[in-house]
Nucleic acid binder design. Structure first.
Lengths: 336, 336
DNA sequence: TTGTAAGCGTTATCAA
DNA sequence: TTGATAACGCTTACAA
């Protein structure tokens, strides 16, 4: 049976409220009382009861991170930064996986775990999430990656069109003329997939190259396996460059190319997006467009915290503004 | 302002307790009352208040997963399985990262977040954690991976010695005679590092090969970078095989070998441990000893749940028994 | 500077 | 089968 404030108060010979003051670092406490209470706390091994505290304050000190799946390295790296940024601000992070499932996504926001947290950082699977915005007076949500909710929710991410443009342009500048596209999407065309595709096409047009549908493939998810399958499918064409919507797809594509005797980068140049650590050590090393993941995570946590505070003060949360984070084109061996 | 049981009770014309009964699926409720309450809940958009419920019940419905860092793919994959297994049992997972830091590890168990969860699945950084066991009547802990607490805590993991033996033996059988070891550890020799090293040595001895300290390197952490550095360091020797304590170290080693013009597997055969998805698509594909990660995660969640229930019923938790999970030697291109 | 009283939303106990 | 009442441990008025 853990000790309560009551126990500490009794042992220290003060009132419960005084213990509370000491615990919360309330300013006006006499030296004598402070040390007495401190000693009692130590002796009893008292820890404030989290549930009682949040029942009273309405805050849990926990935020939720909802991603498709941690097995996809981008989300693991993002999660790492989110957990770190949250820790710096005294917050804990609850992680949920949607596996690209709408129902799981909805549950994460409306179900019990939404109630157990102060707010959510969501990497949505699809842009069609009217449901997200229509939630009545629930905890705040900040979007990361995919855009959703029709621009009604705050969103942190890179300029996907520009990132795709940079990647494709890089391939063209390295002398490729038949540049293909391997894009990830769940279900129907997502906003992110469309942006990356748009950037790809604009880069082609700017270089006076034609957009050839035969060089374009879509995958259901983000796994290496799917990138490999897409490339095998493209191998019959005269492809000499491949812009992949994510690094994992690119790494899968490189593996498949290798199996088919296609030399990367000689026969085929490959560029991805994500800036995974894995691409720095792959064979060949992967050229990529690296978003500032640390910044995305940090800003997402900050924005969420702002929204939580605003709502707590009864204010109306700032409506969904877009926040664009930088990226960097990293040229490595897969595209030289 | 979210609706409370009180509001629902008023609208449905029943008492608060009745609403509680309906919400918790209590057996004896008249059809009529149930539907009336159900309608009221829907109309008001009522969700049970998590804090109040856990204050009352003493349960949070959340468990903690404490790992060194999610950026290390093994932990990301493990986390994925833990989150999935927890979800199946109606639990949420709070993730904390220790970054190999003792203080963070201690805080995760004793600090506020320990109070916010029903129990902890811990992947400790070192075996020297007397502190873990000496915690007074705190929430239960189940260990995963590294052993700690002097066998006083339940532990789920593979037989590290046998896994290392299998990996090393495989290298020897493929004709290697100068097999090196690249091992991960934080600070002083961890229990896991020692077990893996023991298995490595036993396999050498069983094949009448000598253990040569010059072929052994230790890294501080688990990153590709460190595996690469270790291999560069070993390159001056006559090494023809390398057993790496983790897949990430192995992948780093392969990259470094490549850079030095060492052909894997012709000049150097490499085997890791972890069974990462990454190794299935790397160039060359990575031979590995794959633990049943799903089972480790599932059993850890189950054991933790058992311990939580036992403690809730006032029983003394079953003492730290070891639970061994299977592994599989996966032969791929890096060691043929 | 400290103490007293009240209540956060829920479930457990016990009567009705 | 349902309802009243009392906690759970804490913080926030307000009073001393």
């Amino acid at each position: 049976m853990p000790a309560t404030q009551e126990d500490v108060a009794r042992l220290a010979g003060v009132s419960r409220k005084t213990v509370s003051n000491v615990v919360n670092g309330f300013p006006h406490i006499s030296k004598d009382v402070a040390t007495r209470v401190g000693a009692a706390i130590l002796e009893l091994g008292y820890t404030p009861n989290h549930a009682a505290r949040s029942l009273r304050t309405g805050r849990t000190g926990t935020i939720q991170l909802v991603v498709p799946e941690l097995e996809v390295s981008y989300f693991a790296e993002l999660a790492q930064w989110v957990v770190a940024a949250a820790e710096e601000r005294g917050l804990s992070v609850l992680i949920r996986q949607t596996r690209g499932d709408r129902e799981r996504e909805r549950l994460a926001l409306e179900g019990a775990s939404g109630e157990a947290t102060d707010g959510t950082i969501l990497s949505p699977v699809s842009s069609d999430l009217a449901a997200i915005v229509s939630r009545k007076s629930q905890a705040p949500v900040v979007l990361v990656g995919e855009v959703a909710g029709g621009g009604m929710l705050p969103h942190i991410g890179i300029d996907n069109e520009a990132a795709a443009y940079a990647a494709t342009q890089h391939l063209i500048r390295s002398g490729r003329r038949r540049v293909g596209f391997i894009g990830a999407q769940r279900g129907q065309m997502s906003h992110m997939a469309r942006m990356r595709r748009d950037g790809y096409e604009r880069a082609l047009r700017d270089a006076d190259l034609v957009v050839d549908e035969r060089l374009v493939r879509y995958t259901d998810g983000y796994h290496r396996r799917e990138g490999a399958a897409a490339l095998r499918d493209l191998a019959a064409t005269d492809l000499d460059g491949a812009f992949c919507a994510t690094d994992l797809l690119a790494l899968g594509a490189i593996r498949a190319a290798r199996d088919l005797g296609i030399d990367v980068p000689v026969d085929l140049a490959v560029v991805g997006i994500d800036g995974l650590d894995e691409g720095e050590y792959s064979v060949p090393r992967l050229s990529t467009v690296a978003p500032d993941k640390n910044r995305i995570a940090t800003r997402a946590v900050e924005r969420l915290l702002e929204a939580i505070d605003t709502q707590a003060e009864g204010g109306t949360p700032r409506d969904g503004s877009e926040e664009v984070v930088g990226f960097e084109l990293v040229q490595r061996e897969s595209s030289s």
